[in-house]
Design a protein around this nucleic acid. Structure first.
Lengths: 116, 116
DNA sequence: TCCATATTTCGAGAATAATGGAATGAATTG
DNA sequence: CAATTCATTCCATTATTCTCGAAATATGGA
């Protein structure tokens, strides 16, 4: 992942409303959530939310598809994964004596995962 | 980690110059780097860099100590770890079938680490 | 076609962030 | 103490971002 793409992703997430919306989508899984439901869940105005979802989409962190009158947004797990990988790669640079514990701690909540 | 702290950290990293400086510090390890060396390495003006380091420090991502005329900055690994954990925790929410691969991929470059 | 629902786009005003020049503050050296 | 170096703070300008009301677009149903 290139640095400017990482900056775009970090930038998109560096906003309370967008971070909340993104978390919601990540939890919602691949089926995603309608824009209106996200607006209701986060208590934001439809137009404000739309602008925010657009920023997330521009950073490649979410994608959308139309379903009837609704537009369904879903998390782009691959981009998210790339961002995490970028930060971890950045962290360790081959010397695991410092960053091993960092990643270990981060992965601890995940102990049902294959990597654990 | 609370959401607003995560937003502050993401915000601090969501800037090309700051991200570059932070990466540099993370690579530099606990001994850290003098502000001037960072400025030289990143090609930024001292005052601009100072402002940016201040933002990173405000987000808890770096710390500083004086050594003679120089001020040595170093990465705050624990805060970084907390941020990664926050994103991962957010990601998985107990369902590892989606986010297991996400974290696995992110951790792949790190296979000398204890968690690998 | 007409209407209701769902979402986006447009536009403007307010707030916030980024940049760089100049001055200031600390520490070392002679 | 004077000179030098390293870094920060102050300040003004410019640029960007955020938010919300109002209008517009798209879909489905009566």
């Amino acid at each position: 992942m290139e640095s400017n793409i990482a900056v775009a992703a970090l930038s998109a997430l560096a906003h309370p409303g967008r971070l909340e919306a993104f978390r919601l989508l990540v939890r919602a899984g691949s089926e995603g959530m309608a824009a209106g439901d996200i607006a209701r869940a986060t208590g934001s105005l439809p137009n404000t939310l739309s602008a925010n979802l657009n920023v997330l989409a521009g950073a490649g962190l979410v994608q959308s598809r139309r379903d009837g009158r609704s537009i369904i947004y879903s998390a782009a797990y691959e981009r998210m994964s790339d961002l995490l990988a970028f930060l971890v790669e950045d962290c360790c640079d081959g010397r695991s004596e410092i960053c091993g514990p960092v990643v270990e701690k981060a992965a601890r909540p995940l102990c049902g995962a294959p990597s654990c």
